[in-house]
Simulated scan of single mutants.
Amino acid sequence: MYKYVIFLLANICCGAQAHAAAITCSRGKAPTAMTLPYYEADRTIVGGKIYSKIYTYNSINAGSVTLMCNKGPWSVVYYAIPVNGKEPIRHSDDGIDYLIFPTSLSGIGMSFNDTISGRDPNPTPSLNAISPDVRRTYPGATSTTEWSTPMVTLWRIPGSLGEANSNGVLAFTGPSYVQAIMVYPPDTISPDSRAGTGPAPLPNSWTANYISFTGGLNLYPATCTFANVSVYLGNYNHGAIPDPASSWVDASFTVRCPPAWGSGIKAKLGDNRIATRSVAIKSSGLNIKVVPRTEIKDSSKGVIALDGAGAKGYGVQLAWGDVSTQPRGTGIPAKPVVFNTTLAAETISSYQSRSYNLGENVTQNIKMAARFFRLNNEDVELGPASAVVEIIANYD
């Protein structure tokens, strides 16, 4: 009988297993509230131009905070928490990317950018909304002190400008600024970590420094004003009006603009107080828009309808420039008024665009001419003849 010795070969495999660690973090500090500084005497022009900078603080001192964790790895991260969950707007200006967070006040936004030396670019792109900007990572237990000095910019963003309070100030609440510790799954933040340092909407994070921002602005409108003007075009018998139009009449008007305080204040701070400030952009140039209250009959010739309360078969023709320069009869004006379109004043008048001195009172006469104009294929009816246009003028 044969006997066999059978050897059984066993493969013993040892697989590495990940062990989740509960990381305990400490230090940090209690949540704080910060009001952005400004002087009531600060004057800046704000109009409808979207994504224009209103006020820039070169460096807000968010303070120092000591961070410590008993295990690693862990990272120091920064992010922002939007107001009422409002999504930030991505915008690029002068080669810098911004994430602009809507504030509690309609039409006003706010962004944070790092100004830490040695980081390129400086300032760096804005903080994300609840998405961490990782500064540095530590492999194990350690203690470190963090300083933060973000550049804060206030912006004009889409939306009508909110109402001022009883003191004439546009008050707002901005996004919150967060310095935090973040750990990586499967590790978690231990419940033994000191509480009370602020909200932590970022998963696997522990908030070390939470700052809620508020602020206020004194803004001057960019819109100019002028007294209502009534232009008498004359009293005509239908047969006495040379075909197709009456004589030109002066319809010029004078705009009076608010003091030219410029826009885009830049403030340098010391101990979070304004040390010096300057105006980035001086007010320059005027924009004009003519909005008719009646139907546009011929946009290429600058003709609008009468108001329909009397005479028919005629419209009112408007043209830029002095009466003496306008053509007679069927001639088309060199500069007919283009309705519902914003135009630079220097393109329609003898006005010369320039940068105004800060605080300068700006008054400008704009030449315009008007006349009755016969409308083709419309029956003539006698009666009062009138039409109305609205003039909108503001700084460029």
Rank of each mutant, 00 (worst) to 15 (best):
N58W: 12
P82R: 08
F213G: 04
E360N: 05
T325G: 02
N113T: 01
D250T: 04
G315D: 08
N70S: 12
D120Q: 15
P333G: 08
K268D: 15
T24Q: 10
L105P: 00
G95E: 15
N209P: 02
A370T: 04
G308I: 09
L343E: 13
P327N: 08
L217C: 08
A22E: 10
T330K: 15
W320D: 09
S52H: 14
A16V: 14
S299P: 04
S284Q: 13
A129W: 01
A334Y: 11
M151H: 02
G85V: 08
G72T: 07
N218P: 04
V279F: 07
L318K: 07
N209M: 10
P203N: 01
T341C: 01
N228A: 08
I296K: 00
A195D: 03
R90P: 07
I6K: 07
Y98M: 03
I281Q: 09
R90C: 06
D93W: 15
T35V: 14
C14T: 13
K367E: 06
A222M: 08
Q352N: 15
A393C: 09
K3E: 15
G162S: 05
M34W: 06
S349L: 02
L127Q: 05
G107H: 02
A370W: 04
V231S: 05
K29E: 09
T347Q: 14
S350K: 11
E87P: 07
R273W: 07
R27K: 13
R354M: 14
I12M: 10
V323A: 02
D243Q: 12
K367W: 02
L105R: 01
I50W: 05
V316C: 12
K29Y: 03
W248A: 01
C224H: 02
S252M: 04
V389T: 10
I23V: 13
D322L: 09
V183Q: 00
S176K: 11
P121T: 05
P258W: 00
T144E: 15
Y138S: 11
P201E: 01
E40L: 15
L8G: 08
G313L: 05
I281S: 08
K268G: 15
K282R: 15
H91M: 12
G118A: 06
N376L: 11
C224L: 02
I296F: 00
G262L: 06
D396Q: 14
S117A: 08
Y78Q: 09
I348S: 12
H238F: 14
S92H: 13
I50F: 09
